[in-house]
Simulated assay, not measured.
Amino acid sequence: MKKPLKFSFILSISLLFFCCQFRDKLGTQPIFRYEKTISVDGLNRTFTLNLPPNYYENSNLPLVIALHGGGGSGEQCEKDYNLTEKANAENFAIVYPDGVQSDGLLRLRTWNAGTCCDYALEKNIDDVHFISVMIDEILKNYKINPKKVYATGMSNGAILSYKLACEIPNKITAIAAVSGPMSLKDECKSTKPIPILHLHSVLDQKVPVNGGTGIAGNTFPAVTAGLNTWSKLNECKTLAKVIKDDSKYKLTQWLDCKNNAIITYYLTKDGGHSWPGAVKVRAAADEPSTVIKANDLIFDFFKQF
Rank of each mutant, 00 (worst) to 15 (best):
T84R: 14
L255C: 02
W230R: 00
V100E: 09
L83R: 02
D118P: 01
F305G: 01
H68E: 07
T224I: 11
F302W: 08
G277V: 01
H129P: 02
Y249S: 01
I135R: 00
G272V: 10
D126H: 07
C116W: 13
F17Y: 09
P221D: 06
E78P: 03
L51V: 02
K3L: 15
A113P: 03
N228S: 15
T264I: 09
I194V: 07
Y55Q: 00
I65P: 05
K171E: 09
R107S: 12
V100M: 13
R109P: 10
F305D: 02
Y249H: 10
S161P: 05
I263Q: 04
T115F: 14
K185F: 12
A93W: 12
A294F: 08
A151C: 13
F47R: 05
H198I: 02
A113N: 03
M154Y: 06
K143E: 13
K237E: 14
Q29M: 11
D256F: 07
D103L: 13
P146Y: 09
F32Y: 15
N60Y: 07
E287M: 10
T238S: 05
I263T: 09
L26C: 08
K36H: 11
L227S: 06
K192D: 06
N156A: 06
I194H: 09
K147M: 06
L160D: 02
S274A: 13
G114N: 07
N210W: 11
A120K: 04
I243F: 09
A151M: 08
G212N: 00
V95A: 14
P288H: 10
Y265H: 14
P53E: 00
I194G: 04
G180A: 05
I215C: 03
K6A: 13
L255N: 05
N259V: 01
E187N: 05
A225K: 14
S231Q: 10
H68Q: 02
A158L: 04
I175M: 05
G271S: 04
K232N: 10
G211A: 05
K147E: 15
H129R: 15
K189M: 10
M1S: 08
V291R: 02
A294R: 07
I10T: 12
G74H: 08
D296R: 15
Y249A: 05
D98G: 05
T115R: 14
I125A: 12
Q253Y: 04
G72H: 04
V149W: 04
R107K: 12
L105H: 15
D136I: 01
S12L: 15
H273P: 02
P181R: 03
P30S: 06
T115Y: 08
D41F: 03
Y55K: 01
V178F: 14
N259R: 04
G42H: 05
N58E: 12
S183K: 11
F47D: 03
E75L: 12
R23W: 12
S183T: 05
V209R: 11
S102I: 01
D118Y: 14
L105D: 03
K123G: 04
C117F: 11
K171V: 06
I131T: 02
Y162G: 00
T224V: 14
I175L: 09
L267V: 06
T84W: 06
P288L: 07
P221C: 08
F302L: 03
T264K: 11
A261M: 07
S231D: 11
P288V: 10
